[in-house]
């Protein structure tokens, strides 16, 4: 359920994670502010190429595009009809406008392009590596530690949750729309919090015993190679190019 996708033999994997984070950050910002089709389609095209060269499995890409696109389908059902402009087609009592259709199309391409770039990065970087890279990029130590702790414990607590759920099922629990169900779920969440906080205490004690001094050490040291610099500069010039198409 909660898993990372990590590719072993992709060129994306070898790029310095800091470089990848800077690129995805700048790219997302420029895309969020862009509305011209020329910009959006160029960006979508380049993202697809990067994913193809990076040998990211198509199945994974599609699976990860589902959440964004369910929302986009919802927008397609509403937005074309709520923007004012020239009518294009009728659906019952509702009129779709040209401006509405264009606006929704812009949003669809934009969202997908941003998510594709995000997939290219996370598909090739472990969450722990992302945490350390964020630290190197100047994100506050406490926030990075919180990020790493949370990620580590999501798995543990999720397993705990499945265990509790199994115990409930064994006792014949079946979720329905009634008070009993809601009460049971409330107790489930309560128990999850109690167990988690007990565990937090034990973990912290164990860490103190092992000499934890508020510092996380990473085994892989990042080093920027010439290839990384090349990728950084070419991608930044590409992002600037996108900006030029949009605003020039």
């Amino acid at each position: 359920m909660i898993e990372e996708l990590s590719l072993q033999d992709s060129f994306l994997e070898q790029i310095d994670p800091r470089v990848k984070l800077i690129i995805v950050f700048l790219f997302s910002i420029v895309m969020a502010a862009s509305y011209r089709f020329a910009t959006l389609i160029t960006a979508l095209f380049i993202c697809s190429i990067i994913l193809l060269i990076g040998k990211v499995p198509l199945k994974e890409i599609f699976k990860r595009l589902i959440p964004v696109n369910t929302l986009i389908i919802l927008l397609w059902l509403i937005l074309p009809f709520s923007v004012k402009g020239d009518p294009v087609f009728l659906m019952g009592p509702f009129t779709a406008t040209k401006a509405g259709v264009i606006y929704t199309a812009q949003i669809s391409i934009k969202s997908n392009a941003i998510i594709l770039m995000l997939i290219a990065v996370i598909a090739s970087t472990r969450i722990f590596t992302i945490g350390h890279a964020l630290h190197k990029l100047g994100v506050p130590t406490k926030l990075v530690q919180l990020f790493l702790f949370t990620f580590r414990y999501i798995h543990v607590i999720y397993r705990e949750y499945l265990r509790l759920l199994n115990a409930m099922k064994i006792r014949g629990f079946e979720p329905r729309t009634n008070l009993h169900t809601y009460k049971t779920f409330a107790y489930l969440v309560g128990m999850l919090l109690v167990k988690s906080s007990d565990r937090a205490k034990r973990v912290h004690d164990a860490m103190l015993c092992r000499g934890f001094n508020g510092q996380f050490y990473s085994l892989n040291n990042f080093s920027i190679t010439k290839k990384d610099l090349f990728i950084l500069f070419s991608m930044i010039s590409f992002i600037i190019f996108l900006g030029v198409i949009e605003w020039a």
Binding site: M1, T150, Y153, I157, Y182, F185, L192
Partner: peptide, 19 residues
Amino acid sequence: IPSVGIMSAAFFVASLIHV
């Protein structure tokens, strides 16, 4: 930090619970 992290993870898991 460990306790806030674990709480935040617990709420992450709670958000996966469908009622």
